[in-house]
Design a binder for these strands. Sequence first.
DNA 1: AAAATCAATGTTATCGGTAACAATTTTCTT
DNA 2: AAGAAAATTGTTACCGATAACATTGATTTT
Lengths: 350, 350
Amino acid sequence: MKKKATIYDIAREAGVSTATVTRVVRGDPGVREATRDKVQRVIDRNAYAPSMSAQNLESGRSKALAVVVPSISNLYFAKIFDSAYWEAADNGCSVRLIQTKDNQAISPEIVNELIRCRMDGVLFAGNIWSADRADLNDAMERLNHYMPVAAICPPGVELNCIRIESDLLNCARLPVRHLHTLGHRRIAFIGGSMHSKDASHRGATFLEQLRLLGLPDDPAYHVDAGYDMEGGERAVLRMLSALPRERWPSAIVTFNDLVALGAIRQLKKMGQHLPEDMAIVGCDNLFFCPYSDPPLTSVDLHPAEMAQSAVRELLVARESASRSFSILRDATLVVRESCGAALGFRHFDT
Amino acid sequence: MKKKATIYDIAREAGVSTATVTRVVRGDPGVREATRDKVQRVIDRNAYAPSMSAQNLESGRSKALAVVVPSISNLYFAKIFDSAYWEAADNGCSVRLIQTKDNQAISPEIVNELIRCRMDGVLFAGNIWSADRADLNDAMERLNHYMPVAAICPPGVELNCIRIESDLLNCARLPVRHLHTLGHRRIAFIGGSMHSKDASHRGATFLEQLRLLGLPDDPAYHVDAGYDMEGGERAVLRMLSALPRERWPSAIVTFNDLVALGAIRQLKKMGQHLPEDMAIVGCDNLFFCPYSDPPLTSVDLHPAEMAQSAVRELLVARESASRSFSILRDATLVVRESCGAALGFRHFDT
DNA sequence: AAAATCAATGTTATCGGTAACAATTTTCTT
DNA sequence: AAGAAAATTGTTACCGATAACATTGATTTT
């Protein structure tokens, strides 16, 4: 590897001052054509580009945001990052991706890293709010010294930052109402881990909807399913094994599409026909929903739009002072065949 | 936002020199307990952490790698990034994700950005090698001034960098041989865009395998399918519509699992039973393969391991000089039900 | 008690770039 | 051609941290 060129190397080799090199690099006016050419040739020959560290140090700004997620291999978070990435790029900002090791906490190490990088803003997605309150407040406090903070979180969470709220109310209401309209009366929910506040929040909202419609909220219809396919399979097996056939639900609302995928597989293994014997609704509207068998009805929380809003607000907050407010983007139910809408109204309460 | 604290602020407020602050931050020995406590309190009160820009400038190293991919929403690239991220983290390195706008080129802007950031290394995934040769060599040349370069690419590509080769030979050979063993004689390939060298390389390898086994390499069995589900649907429709029923293939090898998913849907629409009427093999072994209907047999190129190797080599190359060599990780065929292996040997050559 | 040793802390040049201003040319006036 | 104005180009302090070295003060040695 050749020695990395600095602006001094370029200036010396071109026989000009560093200021002139800067002018040429930035395309500033007020440089004689001949000088510009001469300097540009030296720049090209050395593959020179000004060091970002030096620029950031000088300007005191990084022109970079951070997005903190549990895992980018999770399509939901990938959508969020992707959207944030391009929205920031449109505004001349880069985005750094930070993954959390333990899958949930907002650790002091991460806070430190964010501060060290002097980010212009940070967006948290994934359930940081289930961390210990004191730790969380402390982290927010520390971060707020240096940068605006945004978080995609359930409604009503107390967080001293820009809150982009997931529409968990509709996330539970839309599928339940839809299934109710189709004639379903025994509706089950297989939700994420009950240890997560996010998941239990969804579970609570789900139960509330059942009660509003006067439907049975049998605890046997509400089981922990984790966040993935295996969880979905196990949850269905556990739930149905524990119930006599005549008390089986006629519809299952799942925590997300992955859980739904697992649930579908397990139901098929148990000889159920979908959607005739059992309706299924997922959440996140991932790319494969139209391609599952049957095509999966799913709630779309519009993660990309939430991320876009978050980035916009962060960029605004860089300048101004307002730091704590919330934004909500309504969820949408995307109806496909797994909920059995095409079958028309039927009364499932045998 | 409070004024961001610098090491000078901390030093002044604690009544010590900057050197002592640095010592406390790093936990260096040789600081009196009382002094350490005093300084630490000021650090905590101000949520101070040393500026990375300043550190990088001083040390001349960024301790950061870059991973350049077309889109992180693509699960294959997400796996690569994820793996690179943690492998780098284990070695005290961070990883920056860069997405390419046009989905394939290694643009001068990206090269410039990489140099500006003074990355310690860069890993390219996605088909940069299909760019114009002159541009590509130029970009490599420029990058090599500043950092080691690695690329995940097809075998045999001429690239002046560390090449982590995808095992495209087996990627075509394994499914074709397997299907042949099961009795299939008319095997089709619906591949990525024919404009991409990667895709055409796979197509060529596929045809070669057919010839080696003495199977027909009818051009009608080889159609462009893009990279996603829609492409798979269209490709199947186009291929089968153009053929009389008796010349339909009995098996289809697809470019990747997404294309396979689309193909499966289209085949079902056309009334085909899978895998009895038609065997399908995908590629990438994505998470949903066990959950598709039928569960999808797929080739695994082990992207995570490739990324891990790439990062290791990049970290080694930081120190040493060797810069151009290649590594190959064998592909694996993961047999599930979509290829009909469970049905036993049958002769499909009606 | 003076000298030597060691522990704790301070000083300063430096990294690569930019901003603000200073200095030098060049071009234009009259 | 002298002086003014405009166009180029150069100089230097600074951004925040660290390394290398310098200094101070305390403790031990003789």
